[in-house]
């Protein structure tokens, strides 16, 4: 196997502890994009109208592109010779670090739109900050992905408005989605020990600040969509530290099937 080489001069100067933290965090970002990109790709060929089938595939492709850059960087940070595919295809559910929200099943179009909207707002705000991250590679990846995330957020925000302020049925469905998915939104902003350490070291923004901006955007979109922002909902946590819902195992069984059935081959 080819030994991963590092092109990031800054990364070579990191202490082993910092390197490990950045590895863990990069992996978390990669897992998140992969799982959401995978979920969206399940829609391909099954969308409500051809034009939206193309739109969802575009978002999925953006996320998969981001995933690959992040895994490649994670592999370099780790320096153990693992590849992007080793990281994606040969880790167990408990090793995955994505938040619970993105692994939730597609459900109906309202579920998918709301999941996307809740995530896009966070993704957009995070990447906006990460563009100035003192880690050059993360900053470069964020700069590219930020443009994509800006479009995703526009797309999902408009759909939330259409469904909320559309027909009675669409309103009922998006409210049901809200009931199902809102409880996973808090985890996005709940800092794990890894994130806290990196925040202290000056690599990550203050998530509380992101949360405030996120709340404002959600309130604005929901007002236009004639939807109520849920209050006092108990937030489910755990994905970012490996405590997943049962959905992830099945997703990975499908995703990893060939690599598991035929170990060590090139495809």
């Amino acid at each position: 196997m080819e030994l991963a080489h590092t092109t990031n001069t800054a990364a070579q100067n990191y202490s082993p502890e910092l390197r490990e933290l950045l590895f863990q965090y990069t992996l978390q970002l990669a897992d998140t994009s992969l799982i959401l990109g995978h979920r969206l790709s399940e829609w391909c060929g099954h969308g409500p109208i051809l034009e939206q089938d193309l739109a969802m595939a575009n978002i999925s492709l953006d996320l998969l592109g981001e995933t690959r850059s992040l895994y490649q960087y994670a592999a370099e940070l780790e320096g153990q010779g693992r590849t992007e595919d080793d990281l994606a295809y040969l880790r167990e559910a408990v090793e995955y670090r994505n938040p619970l929200l993105v692994e939730q099943p597609n459900g109906d179009f309202a579920d998918t739109i709301l999941r996307q909207f809740l995530f896009d707002g966070f993704h957009y705000l995070l990447l906006k900050k990460l563009q100035n991250c003192s880690d050059q590679r993360l900053a470069a990846i964020a700069t590219k992905s930020f443009k994509e995330a800006s479009y995703h957020l526009k797309w999902s925000s408009e759909w939330v408005i259409r469904l909320g302020d559309g027909t009675e049925e669409s309103k009922r469905r998006i409210e049901k989605a809200l009931d199902r998915l809102w409880r996973y939104s808090g985890e996005l902003f709940q800092m794990t020990p890894v994130e806290q350490e990196l925040h202290k070291a000056g690599f990550l923004p203050d998530y509380a600040q992101l949360k405030q901006q996120w709340d404002e955007h959600v309130a604005k979109v929901f007002a236009e969509a004639t939807l109520e922002v849920p209050q006092n909902v108990f937030m489910q946590l755990g994905g970012k530290t490996g405590m997943h819902t049962e959905h992830l195992g099945y997703l990975l069984a499908e995703l990893q099937y060939l690599q598991r059935a035929y170990p060590g081959l090139e495809w």
């Binding site: 992969l34 995978h38 790709s41 399940e42 391909c44 060929g45 089938d53 193309l54 595939a57 575009n58 999925s60 492709l61 998969l64 592109g65 995933t67 690959r68 895994y71 992007e84 595919d85 994606a88 295809y89 499908e254 995703l255 099937y257 060939l258 690599q259 495809w267």
Partner: peptide, 19 residues
């Protein structure tokens, strides 16, 4: 086969093709 493509590269290629 999009959800079962054997590598991230193949997954992206296949998805863009079907798209």
């Amino acid at each position: 086969w999009i959800t079962r493509a054997p590598s991230l590269k193949r997954k992206a290629i296949l998805l863009s093709k079907v798209q």
